[in-house]
Design a protein around this nucleic acid. Structure first.
Length: 554
RNA sequence: GGCCCCAUCGUCUAACGGUUAGGACAUCAGAUUCUCAAUCUGGCAAUACGGGUUCGAUUCCCGUUGGGGUCACCA
């Protein structure tokens, strides 16, 4: 392209903005003073609506890599596609990161403020910067306008497919790459919209080596695609490819962590960097978390529509202890984490020596909610009583006001209820998330119990009544467990239940059931549940009056 | 279809070329003088297939099959 055309293209691209020269831009970005081994990372989501659990996974990796080396962890919002942006999404990202303890050192904070000297940290606010580099590329003959419309491009691809050739805008299919100045000028005159395309320098049958912290050295075909750099939609915004190279160069990212779906386009990014005289980046392409589809039984990406657990709002709403979620995610990244965690159950997660290199090379792991629940139960069981109480009350206050009021109405009682079988070496583990609390403790409160759904057992009403009557005749509210148990056995025997397992086995027809069956009847009558802590303990805490009213009610 | 990545119990994974192929979650059984939970003990359970190389292969090489990713003016 001759100079006058270049100038025309540049002036059209920069119509409504004044753009700095590349030199001026670079003068603004002071080199970071980084000693050896210090890493600068960035978590770079698109503000498209919700925060994916996989995003938290990636963000955590970025945060760990940076902070473990006393480096910097940035948040960069990639909003070059204004069509897909959802309102409030940026704020949501910042607040969810804070919720998970992944507040960035630079970029948007949960309170709306912005930290850092290498901004703006939102791509749509960096338009002049990208344009400055686009202009540089034009000057270097590494970018050119392309006036092809969608139909022409689609026709080319159809043609390629018919001829069994690789689809794409390259070589002889690069319609405008080697057009005459006259043709270009003519379109420019007509005012035809154009995309600015990259003039690739690679050849598809030659290879380029990419340095990847997770995958090692990866050999890929060189890039020969002339991809769009600046969109033709009038926004003047760049595509991801230009934005990535410019941003990570200016922000001085030392490891580009991104999902592995980007791996195939890395040669392109290397080519752009090369064209711009930018040193190639180091990458870390991370696996994508998947799920096993319940219907097809095949592995697939988590989808927001089908899988509520894809959205971290779900985790927050269900109120899983966040430390457990992070621990699970860390274990997914580094399998030796599990052993470390067992040995250091109370240590801050940050003390775990995390390593990018230990990530499995590309096999997207399946999200295992049962394992998450296991981590969560452990986490909660280990929690000091006081903290447990606080968490329970904090959750109920927000999500179950009736239960909260009932709990607060009798603080001493509540204290006892929440302490059941939590002390000692082997605490109960039946709470995996705070939303389990109502089902777990609700029945201790009469007004909640009255409204709660009761579990049904397969026993005739008559037997239930008889069992309860028998229990109440021998029952006395004693504080001695042995006596209590003796009384219960007596009641069971009187009602026709076997105390002796062998006897029951030998002649099941002469009994209504075993002691266990008797206990279950009492338990369900008292709590509405078949699974509760030890009956004696429950009765001690509930008190005589409550027991009387519940067991005589039927 | 082209290109790339990957392949060990159901799941997440460990194993300098030499291990009875280990652990965790899940699951099953027994124990814990009442139900659960927890705990303890034990069990079931894997190197995708076929060729090489080697004294010896989960490990190295080739092929097959399978899974994932990507081939947009989406990121």
């Amino acid at each position: 392209m001759k100079q006058s055309i270049k100038e025309k293209v540049i002036s059209l691209l920069t119509e409504n903005v004044t753009i700095p020269t590349r030199e001026a831009v670079e003068a603004r970005y002071v080199p970071r003073t980084l000693t050896d081994g210090v890493e600068v990372t960035r978590f770079a989501p698109s503000p498209t609506g919700f925060v994916h659990i996989g995003a938290i996974f990636t963000a955590q990796l970025c945060e760990r890599v940076a902070h473990q080396t006393d480096g910097v962890y940035m948040l960069r919002i990639e909003d070059t596609d204004k069509k897909r942006e959802m309102e409030g999404s940026q704020a949501l990202i910042a607040s969810q990161l804070q919720t998970f303890g992944l507040t960035p050192d630079e970029g948007l904070q949960a309170d709306g403020s912005i930290k850092g000297d290498y901004g703006p940290y939102v791509q749509s606010e960096r338009k002049e910067l990208y344009l400055a580099y686009a202009v540089d590329l034009i000057a270097r003959d590494r970018a050119y306008p392309c006036f092809a419309n969608t139909e022409e491009l689609e026709a080319a691809v159809a043609d390629q497919k018919a001829k069994k050739q690789r689809p794409g805008y390259y070589g002889e299919w690069a319609l405008w790459r080697d057009r005459s100045d006259e043709d270009i000028e003519a379109e420019l005159e007509k005012g035809t919209p154009f995309v600015l395309r990259f003039k690739s320098s690679g050849s598809h049958d030659k290879r380029v080596t990419i340095a990847d912290r997770i995958k090692g050295k990866v050999e890929l075909p060189q890039n020969d695609l002339d991809v769009p750099l600046i969109k033709s939609d009038g926004s003047g915004l760049p595509t991801y490819h230009l934005a990535h190279v410019v941003d990570d160069y200016l922000m001085q990212t030392t490891v580009v962590t991104r999902g592995e779906e980007w791996l195939p386009s890395t040669p392109l990014h290397a080519d752009i960097a090369l064209a711009l005289d930018i040193k190639p980046f180091k990458y870390a392409h991370t696996p994508v978390i998947s799920i096993l589809d319940a219907e097809t039984n095949t592995k697939r990406k988590l989808s927001k529509r089908k899988d509520p657990e894809a959205d971290v709002a779900f985790w927050v709403k269900e109120a899983y202890p966040l430390r457990a979620v992070k621990a699970y995610l860390l274990g997914l990244a580094n399998s030796n984490f599990e052993d470390w965690y067992r040995e250091n159950p109370d240590a801050p997660l940050e003390e775990f020596p995390f390593s990018l290199e230990k990530l499995r090379t590309s096999r997207s792991p399946l999200l295992d909610m049962r394992k998450v629940a296991d981590y969560a139960k452990d986490e909660i069981a280990r929690m000091p009583q006081e903290q447990f109480n606080k968490e329970v009350l904090a959750w109920t206050e927000l999500h179950d006001k009736a239960l909260f009021d009932a709990m607060m109405a009798n603080p001493d009682y509540t204290k006892q209820v929440l302490a059941i079988e939590r002390s000692g070496e082997k605490p109960r583990k039946d709470v995996a998330k705070w939303s389990d609390v109502p089902a777990q403790f609700g029945y201790f409160y009469d007004e909640i119990f009255a409204k709660q759904e009761k579990e049904s057992i397969d026993i005739t009403e008559q037997h239930v009544t008889e069992a309860m009557q028998s229990f109440m005749t021998t029952y006395s509210h004693v504080s001695d467990k042995d006596t209590w148990f003796e009384n219960m056995k007596k009641a069971a025997e009187n009602a026709g239940y076997a105390l002796d397992r062998k006897a029951l086995k030998e002649s099941p027809e002469s009994f209504k059931g075993g002691l266990a069956d008797f206990a279950t009847i009492i338990r369900v009558a008292l709590t509405g549940k078949t699974r509760t802590p030890d009956l004696y303990t429950i009765m001690q805490i509930m008190g005589e009056e409550r027991i009387n009213s519940r067991l005589q009610a039927v």
